[in-house]
């Protein structure tokens, strides 16, 4: 589903991503973890076709972000950390706009369900400027689900969400991947994502430190009681 080969990204004098090669099959939830500045967001933005890699090859759902730019974007939804929204649109207008942009037929009923699930239905007519940080995050996630793409990229989606919101999101991710879609979720809340991730992808300094099954990571460090402890143990060993 996602194939990355020798991916590198250079910003002026900073090599943000250094020669990453990774493969993530369909129907998998992959947790992308690593310290700040590890290159997680840059990698996700390359996968979403928002920035062009300096070198290397990317295939998402069999599509190349450069050659099949528009088709790739139709098959990928990217929700950034603190997603920017159009301040002059209401919640409902946002979903309408996304539906129109992604050519989604009969979207209203699904939009309605999604807003209900993320407890935003009462805000349907409200301007996005009146939403809290967490609500904005929920709206962006709802927009991503509305697109229903085969690949969903979530960058720090739990930041700002209330505990019920986190639970709803994690449940929805599991269900979504269960239907054969791929989800990459970048987060620092390792304990939270540990339960839903089939795979863990650890990055440090623009390189891959670990990629494999979550269970395998835990098995490598039997003394670790949680993914968080296994993460720190793994970082200590390789770092």
């Amino acid at each position: 589903m996602i194939e990355i080969t020798h991916l590198q990204k250079l910003y002026d004098d900073t090599l943000a991503v250094k020669d990453i090669s990774i493969s993530i099959p369909a129907g998998v939830v992959c947790g992308l973890v690593g310290p700040n500045g590890a290159g997680k967001t840059t990698t996700l933005r390359c996968l979403a076709g928002l920035i062009r890699p300096t070198a290397g090859e990317i295939r998402v759902h069999g599509l190349c972000p450069i050659e099949d730019q528009v088709e790739l974007k139709r098959n990928v939804a990217y929700v950034p950390d603190d997603p920017p929204l159009f301040d002059d649109l209401s919640v409902g207008q946002h979903l309408d706009f996304v539906a129109q942009l992604y050519r989604i037929a009969d979207h209203r009923r699904r939009a309605y369900d999604l807003l209900e699930r993320f407890e935003l239905l009462r805000k349907y007519d409200s301007a996005v400027t009146s939403l809290s940080r967490g609500m904005r995050q929920k709206l962006a996630i709802a927009c991503a689900y509305l697109i229903e793409p085969p690949v969903l990229l979530l960058d720090e989606p739990l930041t700002g969400l209330d505990p019920p919101g986190i639970r709803t999101l994690l449940d929805s991710i599991t269900q979504y991947a269960g239907r054969g879609n791929t989800v990459i979720i970048s987060s620092h809340l390792l304990a939270m994502i540990g339960d839903v991730c089939d795979q863990v992808w650890m990055m440090h300094g623009g390189t891959v430190r670990y990629h494999g099954a979550t269970t395998a990571l835990r098995a490598s460090f039997p003394q670790a009681e949680s993914l968080e402890q296994a993460f720190f143990a793994a970082m200590t060993v390789v770092g």
Binding site: V70, E71, K73, R74, P84, F97, L101, Y102
Partner: peptide
């Protein structure tokens, strides 16, 4: 994000 990252 929405226009630049959209299928356009």
């Amino acid at each position: 994000l929405w226009i630049g990252g959209g299928p356009m």
